[in-house]
């Protein structure tokens, strides 16, 4: 795979002139970049046919380093923009990079409705359990009792279980892994890219700068070891009680099923109406007498 002139395995896909990245040392975002490329190669997709869409946050800066078409959009809205891209050109492979704050707080509604529609997008949500870019505020996925700059006495709230949430909302492929599982994560992203429908891959990731520092896990290595130790695969977890699962991270596939995909259904409808000569549904709105 590597010849002498090539250098790093993934460098050809990256905008070398912009590197090193802005991410802190040991931030999980860089690992997600690698696993994405690994998955893209396994799924035999071409970067030229991929459009990346992101919102706001540290992880949303990822597309800016990658040699493909990309949109860096407004906070929480990447799925809405990505829906537009997909419907304008259903042939495109549309990938969303988002964080827990972006996807689950301000963008929570777009997330569940994207899943409900089952539109063919691959959403990679890098969940570091905190707002990194803005200084360590508690996010909707911060574990109960964890510390942040807005929770000096520990978070009181119960966090969202994103994989369960998006699965319940109707996504056809949902998985959760951590940055300490790069091979399983690559495989899940591959499945997400191949799935014709809404795919959601939650990556539990480390933000050593804020989450780590505020929660007494100073190094990225400490955080990754912790994630690995807390992880338990879904198959096993399904047989355990709630008490046994307290504080555990459930990883694996949460949904893998099929149902009609939105952009395809829409194209079919448009085709059918155009063949009939009169797009009745559109006209009728004008015909109605008020």
């Amino acid at each position: 795979m590597n010849d002498k002139t090539k250098g790093n395995r993934f460098m050809d896909y990256l905008r070398r002139e912009r590197m090193p990245t802005i991410f802190c040392a040991g931030c999980g975002n860089g690992i997600v970049i690698n696993t994405f490329f690994n998955a893209m190669e396994m799924a035999e997709l071409n970067l030229d046919n991929i459009t990346m869409v992101s919102g706001i946050g540290c992880s949303s800066r990822i597309p800016g380093y990658i040699k493909c078409d990309s949109l860096h959009t407004t906070h929480g809205r990447p799925i809405a923009f990505a829906t537009g891209v997909k419907l304008a050109n259903p042939e495109m492979d549309v990938v969303v990079f988002s964080g827990d704050g972006d996807a689950a707080a301000i963008g929570g509604n777009h997330l569940i409705h994207g899943a409900r529609r089952n539109i063919n997008l691959t959403v990679i949500c890098i969940n570091n359990s905190i707002y990194g870019m803005t200084g360590g505020q508690i996010s909707p996925t911060s574990p109960k009792g964890s510390f942040g700059s807005t929770a000096p006495y520990g978070a009181l709230e119960t966090p969202f279980d994103l994989a369960e949430l998006v699965s319940a909302a109707g996504a056809t492929y949902v998985a959760r892994w951590t940055t300490a599982h790069p091979l399983q994560l690559s495989n899940a992203i591959k499945k997400g890219l191949q799935n014709k429908g809404f795919s959601f891959i939650e990556v539990v990731s480390q933000c050593p700068t804020y989450f780590g520092r505020k929660n007494k896990m100073r190094s990225p290595v400490d955080m990754m070891k912790w994630m690995k130790e807390q992880s338990i695969v879904k198959r096993k977890a399904d047989k355990m009680t709630e008490e046994e699962l307290e504080g555990k991270l459930i990883v694996g596939d949460f949904a893998d099923r099929s149902r009609p995909e939105f952009s395809e259904s829409l194209c079919e409808l448009v085709n059918q109406k155009c063949q009939e000569g009169s797009p009745e549904a559109i006209k009728s709105a004008y015909k109605i007498k008020l």
Partner: peptide
């Protein structure tokens, strides 16, 4: 190649298969 897959800064090249 695990190190190259995990290095967040794409700093490692492992040559050979």
């Amino acid at each position: 190649n695990l190190c190259a897959l995990m290095c967040p800064d794409q700093a490692i090249t492992v040559e050979g298969n």
